[in-house]
């Protein structure tokens, strides 16, 4: 099996073809997805924190599942469809995604560092299960940590979106 030469990622609807290599702009086999998003592509909306998958802050959606982007090698993402926090608002109108708007309305953050991860995890949950119970939301968000204790507001914000259209 010959080693692959490049990877193609579809990020927020946009195709990126990246060569494997050690030059600037190329993907090293050891590059994690969070590294590629932030350092190679400049998509700094996704935050990097613990680097061990323990905090949930770097969560992105890959093939419909919320995943920690620090625990994924970019070289293994060939052909994947990835959504980051930058991809949520309506790119033409600039309108925020209902979840983003709910976080603003319920002041579901303080410093905001954990917020992109919270929102992406909640988004994956609602995509799969549009009307989750409070317990289900708590369970889904149990791996997303917040040091400012915004959880109560986060829960309210997500519940408010979940209850819409019920």
């Amino acid at each position: 099996m010959a080693a692959i030469k490049s990877v193609t990622l579809k990020i927020n609807g946009q195709i990126h073809e990246l060569d494997i290599g050690s030059k600037v702009g190329q993907i090293d086999p050891a590059d994690t997805l969070i590294h590629t998003l932030r350092e190679t592509l400049g998509l700094t909306g996704t935050k990097a924190s613990c680097g061990n998958g323990a905090c949930g802050i770097c969560t992105v959606i890959m093939d419909s599942k919320a995943v920690p982007s620090c625990k994924i090698l970019t070289i293994e993402c060939d052909g994947k469809e990835i959504t980051t926090i930058e991809g949520l608002r309506n790119l033409k109108t600039g309108t925020l995604h209902p979840l983003q708007q709910a976080f603003v309305d319920f002041t579901a953050f303080q410093c905001g560092f954990c917020t992109p991860g919270m929102i992406m995890t909640a988004k994956a949950l609602l995509d799969e299960n549009p009307h989750p119970s409070e317990e289900e939301i708590k369970d889904a968000l149990s791996g997303n940590f917040c040091r400012c204790v915004s959880h109560y507001q986060v829960l309210k914000a997500v519940l408010s979106v979940a209850e819409k259209g019920r």
Binding site: G53, A54, K65, A66, V67, P68, K71, S142, G143
Partner: peptide, 9 residues
């Protein structure tokens, strides 16, 4: 085990 997002991987 771990968290929901890790269990997705």
């Amino acid at each position: 085990i771990a968290s929901p997002n890790l269990r997705n991987m």
